[in-house]
Amino acid sequence: DDSGRRGVRVFARSGEGAWTRHATGSLGSAVPAPDAVEGVWPPAGAESVALDGMYERLAEHGYHYGPVFQGLTSAWRSGEAWYAEIALPADTDVSGYGIHPALLDAALHTLAAATGGAVEEVRLPFNFAGVGLYATGATALRVQLTPVDESGDTVTFHLTDP
């Protein structure tokens, strides 16, 4: 709009059912760009986390992700911090998006990796703050997830393209 903000709405549906709006908000350019992430990737000493069967376990409990939304490809842990790589299938069109919804969703799947894909408590983010977008057209991202407190209910995500 005229103030540099962009409206955003998040919808989902099951199969051919009706679309349900789950969130609305706005994005703008008020957040200053962070410093570039430099160094070895994944960070030295980070331990690889097996993701084998994670999406299958989620599907067994009713959380079905189509092929475009199964973008979490690798994950690591170092202390309380989690690191991941995510990617869209090669033929996914990202034009028209600041960040493709499936790519953002896959970044959030790092939360599922943090629980080993356990589904007793699927954690879905519902409040975002301090979000900034500094480049468009990404088809792959690196994710850093850091808990803000001991509860693990609040986390910081940092996404960068390779």
Results as ranks from 00 to 15, higher is better:
residue 85 E to G: 13
residue 124 L to N: 08
residue 153 D to R: 14
residue 88 L to H: 03
residue 149 D to I: 01
residue 60 E to G: 15
residue 48 S to A: 14
residue 73 T to A: 15
residue 129 A to T: 14
residue 43 P to L: 11
residue 36 A to E: 08
residue 80 E to M: 00
residue 28 G to F: 02
residue 45 G to H: 08
residue 58 L to P: 03
residue 69 F to V: 02
residue 105 D to E: 14
residue 95 S to N: 14
residue 144 Q to S: 15
residue 57 R to E: 05
residue 121 E to H: 12
residue 67 P to N: 10
residue 55 Y to M: 04
residue 43 P to H: 11
residue 54 M to E: 04
residue 40 V to G: 07
residue 29 S to V: 13
residue 23 A to Y: 02
residue 152 G to C: 05
residue 58 L to E: 01
residue 146 T to M: 07
residue 48 S to T: 04
residue 101 P to V: 06
residue 5 R to K: 08
residue 89 P to E: 04
residue 117 G to A: 04
residue 123 R to G: 08
residue 93 D to T: 10
residue 96 G to S: 13
residue 41 W to G: 00
residue 54 M to C: 05
residue 38 E to L: 12
residue 161 D to E: 14
residue 61 H to R: 15
residue 136 T to W: 06
residue 3 S to L: 14
residue 6 R to T: 13
residue 32 P to S: 11
residue 99 I to T: 05
residue 82 W to M: 13
residue 131 V to N: 09
residue 133 L to K: 13
residue 3 S to Y: 14
residue 82 W to K: 13
residue 116 G to L: 05
residue 160 T to M: 06
residue 65 Y to R: 04
residue 53 G to E: 11
residue 71 G to F: 06
residue 136 T to E: 15
residue 53 G to R: 07
residue 15 G to P: 05
residue 155 V to Q: 08
residue 155 V to I: 06
residue 128 F to T: 01
residue 66 G to A: 12
residue 123 R to A: 14
residue 10 V to F: 15
residue 114 A to M: 06
residue 105 D to G: 10
residue 106 A to K: 05
residue 89 P to M: 12
residue 9 R to W: 07
residue 71 G to P: 03
residue 90 A to L: 10
residue 24 T to S: 15
residue 21 R to W: 01
residue 33 A to I: 01
residue 134 Y to G: 01
residue 86 I to Q: 09
residue 65 Y to N: 03
residue 39 G to H: 11
residue 63 Y to I: 12
residue 150 E to F: 06
residue 151 S to K: 02
residue 156 T to W: 06
residue 24 T to I: 14
residue 19 W to K: 10
residue 23 A to R: 09
residue 74 S to T: 11
residue 81 A to C: 11
residue 59 A to H: 01
residue 110 T to F: 00
residue 19 W to N: 07
residue 118 A to V: 00
residue 90 A to Y: 05
residue 104 L to D: 04
residue 155 V to W: 09
residue 162 P to V: 06
residue 152 G to H: 06
residue 108 L to F: 11
residue 17 G to N: 06
residue 19 W to A: 15
residue 49 V to D: 03
residue 77 R to E: 03
residue 129 A to W: 02
residue 1 D to S: 13
residue 140 A to W: 00
residue 7 G to S: 11
residue 137 G to K: 04
residue 72 L to C: 07
residue 70 Q to A: 08
residue 130 G to E: 15
residue 59 A to G: 06
residue 102 A to Y: 07
residue 86 I to V: 15
residue 94 V to I: 04
residue 157 F to L: 15
residue 18 A to N: 08
residue 139 T to F: 01
residue 101 P to H: 08
residue 112 A to P: 00
residue 84 A to R: 03
residue 40 V to D: 12
residue 87 A to H: 01
residue 132 G to I: 08
residue 31 V to N: 10
residue 41 W to R: 10
residue 21 R to S: 05
residue 122 V to N: 05
residue 132 G to K: 11
residue 78 S to G: 12
residue 45 G to M: 02
residue 19 W to I: 09
residue 125 P to E: 09
residue 120 E to M: 08
residue 13 R to H: 15
residue 108 L to R: 09
residue 154 T to E: 13
residue 105 D to A: 12
residue 139 T to S: 15
residue 79 G to H: 11
residue 79 G to T: 12
residue 52 D to P: 00
residue 121 E to S: 14
residue 94 V to R: 00
residue 148 V to P: 05
residue 80 E to V: 01
residue 54 M to K: 11
residue 82 W to E: 09
residue 145 L to N: 04
